[in-house]
């Protein structure tokens, strides 16, 4: 890995994911196909690590996002809140080939946040009285039941940012932010692909969403199409 004046910048997505080993847990940013780290996901498909656990709100679609790793048989377990648009996923899940932990979206976000923030577990009302709470500790606060949920720390985090610098400071754009800052904080090794790699000092300190200390590797994302899952246009 490059060090010194280049800081955390690595030359390619392939180099950034080279040491992801079989059985690793990954926290992956993105919501649907919005803000997904598509370059590092593609590199990981080529790298071939298997038996991965992927913690991500969704699992892409059949031919994009984490769907690429799923179709390539690299994912053993998904931890997600919504998986409705992926036929490969549905087939693998219903046939029992893929282990799936469905987590309420807010709980998933908070488990990653807690993991990055050193909070081992927390109580939430989401999921009380549903299969989500099965086997988990519940406790009443102010007369309302809550379920104990545990933090998630991942071996690697893959995130996508709009702008980043060699120190790993990141700025996200619009709703592409979503789970990215949470995944970034929850990764032991966080790999950020950035659309614009800017000089240190160029980002306004007030505008930084992910301070650089959460990020271990930065890679310039190659120019490439950002897919749109549901393109809606006004008839104006």
């Amino acid at each position: 890995m490059t060090t010194g004046t280049a800081g955390k910048v690595v030359a390619s997505a392939a180099e950034a994911v080279a040491d992801v080993r079989d059985g690793a847990t990954l926290a992956v940013g993105g919501f649907g196909l919005c803000g997904i780290p598509q370059a590092t996901i593609a590199a990981l498909r080529d790298q071939g690590a298997r038996d991965l656990t992927a913690v991500s709100n969704n699992c892409g679609v059949d031919d994009a996002g984490l769907g690429l790793l799923l179709a390539n048989g690299q994912i053993r377990k998904m931890v997600s809140s919504y998986v409705g648009e992926n036929k490969t996923f549905e087939r693998l899940f219903l046939s029992g080939e893929l282990e799936v932990e469905l987590v309420p979206q807010g709980t998933l976000a908070e488990r990653l946040r807690a993991g990055g923030a050193g909070i081992p577990a927390f109580y939430t009302p989401a999921g009380v009285g549903t299969p989500v709470a099965d086997g988990k500790e519940t406790r009443a606060f102010d007369g309302r039941d809550h379920v104990l949920e545990h933090a998630i720390v991942a071996d690697f985090a893959l995130v996508r940012a709009w702008k980043g610098d060699a120190l790993g400071n990141l700025v996200y754009r619009r709703t592409a932010r979503n789970f990215n800052p949470l995944a970034a904080a929850a990764g032991r090794v966080t790999i950020a692909e950035v659309e614009q790699l800017v000089e240190v000092g160029e980002l306004d300190g007030d505008a930084i969403h992910t301070p650089g200390l959460y990020v271990q590797r930065v890679v310039q994302a190659p120019p490439g199409e950002k897919r749109i899952e549901r393109r809606m246009v006004a008839s104006r």
Binding site: G84, G106, A126, V132
Partner: peptide
Amino acid sequence: LVKGMGGAMDLVHG
């Protein structure tokens, strides 16, 4: 049918 709960479980309590 597997869709997932998305944010619904949080929303109904919050």
